[in-house]
Design a protein around this nucleic acid. Structure first.
Lengths: 186, 186
DNA sequence: GCAACCGGAGAACGAACGTTCTCTCGATGT
DNA sequence: ACATCGAGAGAACGTTCGTTCTCCGGTTGC
């Protein structure tokens, strides 16, 4: 197994385990078993568990932003592109292994102890907020609306995770639709 | 120190430490030091750390619901009582030790490992949702609006925690105001 | 064929933590 | 005054975990 596939296997295994069980609950040995990469190799690629956690979060940040872009860019009108964010959420929440937003979860678990994790989580949420703000601006709506829609999106993630249902995405989408209607294009 | 004050000191110290540093990051010895209650007494009152965690969450559930009731019942009209929930959030987020919602954080940290914690978190969010639904119904609005406002409230909590600002409460309140306006009383 | 090296498996190590135990002291009842 | 009980301080125990080390087998270059 070469360098890059070992790294990919590690990131895949760690990402899945961290998301499913929580970061602190997953030992390095579980990652070794799931990835098939020895501990020695693992510590050559990532000098500590925290480095691995940060790499996992950074990769997930890129993947999520690409997914959101795929959803929004597939729609025809600016308003539809805004609402597509909430369709993305609904599809995500319906996946059987959905356990909430990994960034919100990591922030809750490691925020008090790890400034690096806080920075990564903040950067991710800021990037999503920027994307949403661009879509809202393209639809001719106000920045205030973008802030409101970000709150709706984050709220849908935690509410869906806790109640164990994808419906909060529909609630958030309905609210977003009404807010779009109530914030007429300039 | 008698039975009940020892219990109160333990719950106070554990609640503050769990909220500030996360549950898994706080050892029983830190709780002993902060509370002044010996480990022996602690284990007589709470047979395990998990029992203590659950007691802390249940007490916080009661306290938060009382605070919300105090905010909402102080307003004159049904619509104002709905919006008072978001004023409560703004005041809460502005407190210097604000670190997000303890229930959302506990769910993220212990949800995969503790079904009891999941039950307590779900019950808390359901109780808040019920309260909100009653206020919305009293204002003559639809249950769908109540679901949307719950998403807004939860989203304000996580967004404010991550960005480190109370402003998301204002964003959520503005959205709630518009949604109330767009959902006219029956 | 052989020696040198790289990587894997798993033991080992040190720290942290939840929980229990020991020892001692002070209070209480008679 | 004295015996008894309960509680506190802190050591101790067993486990888990992050990280490192050891040993060994296979591969590669001559």
């Amino acid at each position: 197994m070469d360098h890059t596939t070992a790294e990919a296997r590690l990131l895949d295994a760690a990402d899945a385990l961290f998301y499913e069980r929580g970061i602190q609950a997953v030992g390095m040995d579980a990652i070794r078993q799931a990835s098939g990469v020895s501990l020695k190799r693992t510590y050559q690629l990532f000098p500590s568990k925290e480095h691995l956690v940060e790499a996992v979060l950074r990769r997930r940040d890129r993947a999520i932003r690409e997914q959101i872009s795929a959803y929004t860019s597939a729609r025809a009108t600016p308003a539809e592109r805004v609402l597509a964010v909430f369709d993305y959420l609904y599809d995500w929440f319906g996946q059987p292994d959905f356990r909430g937003c990994a960034f919100i979860n990591s922030f809750a678990e490691l925020g008090p102890a790890s400034a690096n994790v806080v920075d990564i989580v903040r950067a991710h949420k800021q990037a999503v907020a920027d994307h949403l703000a661009a879509l809202v601006a393209a639809a001719g709506r106000s920045p205030a609306l973008a802030a409101q829609l970000l709150v709706l999106a984050n709220g849908a993630m935690v509410t869906a995770a806790i109640v164990g249902s994808p419906e909060p995405a529909r609630d958030a989408r309905a609210a977003a639709q009404r807010l779009l209607d109530a914030d007429p294009a300039t």
